[in-house]
Design a protein around this nucleic acid. Structure first.
Lengths: 116, 116
DNA sequence: TGAACTGGTAAGTCCTAACTTACGGTAAGT
DNA sequence: ACTTACCGTAAGTTAGGACTTACCAGTTCA
């Protein structure tokens, strides 16, 4: 199938993508400046195919994009994907902390308890 | 000094903690309202010990805390840990997108290239 | 047209971790 | 005291994914 249509992936996919140490390192390197696969592999302690596979995961998660340049492929961050993930997480934190505050309210106001 | 390394490591730990589907589900359930281990296990498609193990990971990542209530243990979000992760991610996105913009500047202004 | 780069993919190995069952330990109810 | 309910941990199994080597396709330059 076309992985291009999967421009924006789910939050779980983004967490999974950035959850791996090597992949987070790749992402951070690309955050500094766009690079080719060989440049990344030269610095990281894994082989070039491994970097390619990690880049595929990051690309499927919508976090990076590639652009051909001669025989090389320059990878860079996908600002849209990163911004989308950031917005999604912001709403997520807001909901979580709001619900938490509501629970605290209900805690300090013991009108009714004992709900198994 | 070690703030940077520690901060980066904790971010990776948080990503790893929330990268698992089941663990993210646990975290989202707790974001709605505090619950006991048995309540979580009753809804989720895994056994109770599995939920306990996931809660341990989330607790080690500083994302949730537990409070004894009789024979049960009520888990809830750790607002401090969540807020800390949120702040750290905000700085992370800022750095990433700022560097990306700088790279775009350098791209549209091709004073020098050819850096293999 | 070759030779020498580049990088994606296949196939296979290996190790981590997510899951299970079994057990022990604590708190409340009878 | 005995029973019941709830939970954490140990031990063991298994599925997934992170990594390797080998191979193939596309691009550039002689």
């Amino acid at each position: 199938m076309t992985n291009q249509a999967t421009a924006t992936a789910s939050t779980a996919d983004a967490f999974t993508a950035l959850g791996d140490r090597t992949r987070l390192a790749v992402f951070e390197r690309l955050a500094e400046h766009p690079q080719s696969v060989g440049q990344l592999a030269a610095v990281l302690p894994v082989s070039r195919p491994a970097v390619s596979q990690h880049l595929r995961v990051l690309k499927d998660a919508g976090l990076v994009i590639a652009r051909p340049a001669g025989t090389r492929r320059i990878y860079q961050l996908n600002p849209e994907g990163v911004a989308a993930l950031r917005d999604h997480l912001d709403r997520f934190w807001d909901r979580a902390l709001t619900s938490f505050k509501a629970a605290v309210e209900q805690q300090t106001r013991p009108s009714q308890e004992r709900q198994p």
